[in-house]
Measured scan of single mutants.
Amino acid sequence: KYSDMIVAAIQAEKNRAGSSRQSIQKYIKSHYKVGENADSQIKLSIKRLVTTGVLKQTKGVGASGSFRLA
């Protein structure tokens, strides 16, 4: 599940300011076997996790910027 992968990526990075979408994508692609549409799936999952309150956006708008666990 992409949401689990995103949470794992943010936990692994341990950046106080949060993790960027690009760094999350890079982590997921190197640690998991994902399909061609992974980028758009990650983007959608990040937006969903922010609206449900699992992630907090520290910089930027939408799916860009930095995110950390709430």
Rank of each mutant, 00 (worst) to 15 (best):
K1D: 13
Y2C: 15
S3E: 15
M5L: 05
M5E: 01
I6L: 01
V7N: 00
V7M: 08
V7T: 04
V7S: 02
A9E: 00
A9F: 04
I10S: 04
Q11A: 11
Q11L: 14
A12C: 13
E13N: 12
E13K: 07
K14C: 15
K14T: 08
K14Q: 12
N15K: 10
G18T: 03
S19R: 07
S19N: 02
S20Y: 03
S20W: 04
S20T: 14
R21S: 10
R21H: 11
Q22E: 13
Q22L: 11
Q22C: 15
Q22H: 08
S23E: 09
S23P: 14
S23M: 07
S23Y: 15
S23L: 04
S23D: 10
I24P: 00
I24V: 02
Q25I: 15
Q25L: 15
K26L: 12
Y27K: 00
I28A: 01
I28G: 01
I28F: 01
S30V: 08
S30Y: 07
H31R: 05
Y32L: 03
Y32F: 13
Y32P: 02
Y32K: 01
K33N: 12
V34M: 05
G35F: 04
G35S: 08
G35P: 09
G35I: 04
G35L: 15
E36D: 10
E36C: 11
N37V: 05
N37A: 06
A38Q: 04
A38W: 06
S40Q: 13
Q41T: 05
I42M: 02
I42P: 00
I42V: 05
K43R: 12
L44H: 08
L44W: 08
S45K: 06
S45N: 13
S45D: 06
I46E: 01
I46H: 00
I46Y: 01
K47Q: 13
K47T: 08
K47I: 13
R48T: 08
L49V: 00
L49M: 11
L49C: 04
V50G: 02
V50C: 15
V50H: 00
V50P: 00
V50Y: 02
T51C: 14
T51G: 08
T51H: 12
T52I: 14
T52H: 07
T52M: 14
G53Y: 02
G53C: 06
G53L: 03
V54R: 05
V54I: 10
V54K: 05
L55F: 01
L55C: 01
K56E: 13
K56I: 15
K56H: 10
Q57I: 12
Q57K: 11
K59A: 08
K59P: 07
G60A: 07
G60C: 10
V61M: 10
G62Y: 06
G65V: 15
G65Q: 13
S66Y: 14
R68S: 11
R68Q: 13
R68N: 06
R68E: 08
L69S: 03
L69Y: 06
L69G: 02
A70T: 07
A70Y: 10
A70K: 05
